[in-house]
Amino acid sequence: MGQILDFTLLFLLLVTAVATARVRDLFAAVMLSGIYGLVSASFFVTMDAVDVAFTEAAVGAGVFPLLLLAVLAMVGRYEKTAYRRPWAALILVTITGAMLVNGTLDMPAFGSADSPAQQHVAQRYIEESPEEIGIPNMVTSVLASYRGYDTLGEVVVIFTAAIGVLALLPSLGGGVRRKRESDGMGDHQVLRIVSKILMPVILLFALYVQFHGEYGPGGGFQAGVIFAAGIILYTMLFGLDTAQAVIKPSVLRVLAATGVLLYGGVGLLSFLSGANFLDYSALAEDPVSGQHIGIILIELGVGITVAAAIILIFFAFSEAAGENGEET
């Protein structure tokens, strides 16, 4: 049963990818990439990766297609050129693929419990983390504590990418901005009412995912993207101006930095308490409750930075689309 489900989802992914390669209409390609994201999120659930599925559903099926749509509004919907030398490319990818398939023949069988990947540090994480860290969700333990240093780096990358986007797409603020009449879709009564019912639920769910991340699937990354998806839905319906009145971009900029600072600050605090950087055991008398405090704080930092960075990026794109959209 599980295998049929698994195979069906992979087959759907394959069909979606082939369709993406074939369509000439970029709008259709964007919609297909949304489907691709949603199907791969479902696949992650069947692979027991519930935390990953949350993130992929919000990012792959939500944020990424919306960013692409904002870009299409600026650059136009149709591709001009036909395929360039498709046969040469086809031969190249076939050869590469055949070599990779040949490589998989030496791999351990799918799902085998004694493959090298399951033998390395994973056993220790699974056996020791409930006592050492004291929280049931091992993904959170590894993400926030064992690999806290790595996660800090990733949060910094997200923060830097947001800075890059803001630098590349400068808002022409200060100048007189046209009041956009057609902005948003608030005139559609069904959309407006349904989204007003959904909005609080989405935001509440994001907060639940944030603060329940130690006990169930969830954590800062997932909560951040779900929260951002909620605000993006609001922006799509009621327009950029309304959304920016609700959450000011200047506040978001400060929040994006605050999250990183909170994360780094916890690291420094544990440093000053006599332990290693990002070793939370020193934060309280009892090492396990120290770990709890540290994980809650850094997950909060991650959530704040991710949510603020994604909302800022979306604001920057929709602002640029509002200014340049009419030309094309």
């Binding site: 792959g60 994973a122 920057a316």
Partner: peptide, 24 residues
Amino acid sequence: NPLPHVLILTAIVVGIATMALALS
């Protein structure tokens, strides 16, 4: 195995951030 989950979970969010940079 929780370890690949952690790596991919963060890679997805980093991926969307860098993809946004490419789109800009």
